[in-house]
Amino acid sequence: MPVPSPDKPVYRFAPSPNGNLHLGHALSAFLNHDLARGAGGRFLLRIEDIDTARCTPEFEARIYRDLAWLGLEWENPVRRQSEHFTFYAAALGRLNEIGLIYPAFMTRGEVKARVAALEAMGGVWPRDPDGSPLYPEDDRHRSETERRTLIEKGLRHAFRLDMHKALEQVNRPLFWTETGDGRKGSIEADPAAWGDVILSRSDAASSYHLSVTVDDAAQGITHVVRGLDLFAATSVHRLLQALLDLPEPCYHHHRLVLGADGRKLSKSEGSTGLAALRSQGLGPDAIRRLVGL
């Protein structure tokens, strides 16, 4: 589908309440807020708490406090992923109806052992853009009877996208419009590089890829502004948008705020946490300067 008209843009900041916000989050929140305000658009806050085991109300409360301290204002009510499991299940059901997903039974340990065995013999296991091994093809080729038997036995499983069938279903090149700090212009998506991505697990109703795609469409997001670490993942999101007939936002992947070691900041690094910086007497203007704004 065509890129939405930017005359009434809608931006969103979508943190996960599984740790404290840090300077990297501040940069992304500032950019979304400022771009929305500068264009006369809307700024939304979304709480991505699909991982109910790690996300807590305490961390969610800290998100609201930190963003308010930064001087940001957002629309209410806030969308919380944990309140929309049915939306993700419906999207997964649509993909299942057209035969594009399958139950995957191999554990992470089994995959790791398979990869290690091949590499020990000098082989090269294909990996996704994040460096993780692609999922083996075994489960993709199981018969429906075998799949039902394993599920009836109670074997834990996830649901993965059959990438080969999905690309055949779309049957055209996919692109996105990029305005960020890296490559700009019309970017050709390469979802095949990710292999059979996971869309749902036994301990999570939806994967990041599926939920963020569904949420952006449900909220009418026209401009997705997020870190460059998610640039490659956009290929998967464009594929899901095409499969589910969802609108295509514009994308802006911004530079990352790096730690002293040159790596992306982690929520476990207290020194760059917004609460820690606030306790040191810093204010919102100082935070803006620290993130280069």
Rank of each mutant, 00 (worst) to 15 (best):
P2L: 07
P2T: 09
S5N: 15
P9K: 01
A14F: 10
A14T: 03
N18D: 15
L27K: 10
L27H: 13
A29G: 10
D34C: 02
R37L: 06
R37C: 03
G40K: 04
G40P: 00
F43S: 15
L44E: 09
L45W: 11
D49Y: 02
D49C: 01
I50D: 10
T52R: 15
A53P: 05
R54C: 02
E60P: 01
E60S: 08
A61D: 15
R62W: 13
Y64I: 09
Y64N: 11
D66W: 12
A68K: 14
W69H: 04
L72Q: 00
L72H: 04
E73S: 12
W74Y: 14
E75D: 15
N76F: 10
R79Y: 09
Q81H: 02
Q81T: 02
H84T: 00
H84S: 00
F85N: 13
A91L: 00
G93F: 08
R94K: 13
F105S: 02
M106T: 15
T107V: 07
G109C: 00
E110P: 00
A117C: 10
A117T: 10
L118A: 11
E119A: 08
E119M: 04
E119S: 08
D128T: 04
G131S: 14
S132A: 12
L134I: 07
D138H: 13
R142Y: 12
R147P: 00
T149D: 12
E152M: 05
R156S: 07
R156M: 05
A158D: 07
F159I: 05
R160M: 01
M163N: 09
M163W: 06
L167K: 05
R172W: 03
R172I: 12
E178W: 08
G180L: 02
D181Q: 03
R183T: 14
R183S: 13
I187N: 00
E188A: 06
D190I: 06
A193M: 01
D196N: 07
V197T: 11
S200H: 13
S200P: 01
S202Y: 01
Y208S: 07
V212H: 06
V212G: 09
V212Q: 09
V214N: 05
D216P: 02
A218S: 05
I221M: 05
T222R: 09
H223D: 09
G227F: 03
A232R: 13
A233L: 07
V236Y: 03
H237V: 11
R238W: 00
R238D: 01
L239R: 02
Q241M: 12
Q241C: 10
Q241Y: 05
L244R: 00
E248K: 05
Y251N: 06
H253D: 13
L256N: 13
G259I: 04
G259W: 04
D261V: 01
D261E: 14
R263N: 14
R263H: 14
L265C: 03
K267W: 06
S268I: 12
E269H: 11
E269S: 09
S271W: 09
L277E: 12
S279E: 15
G281L: 10
G281T: 01
D285C: 11
L290C: 05
L293W: 14
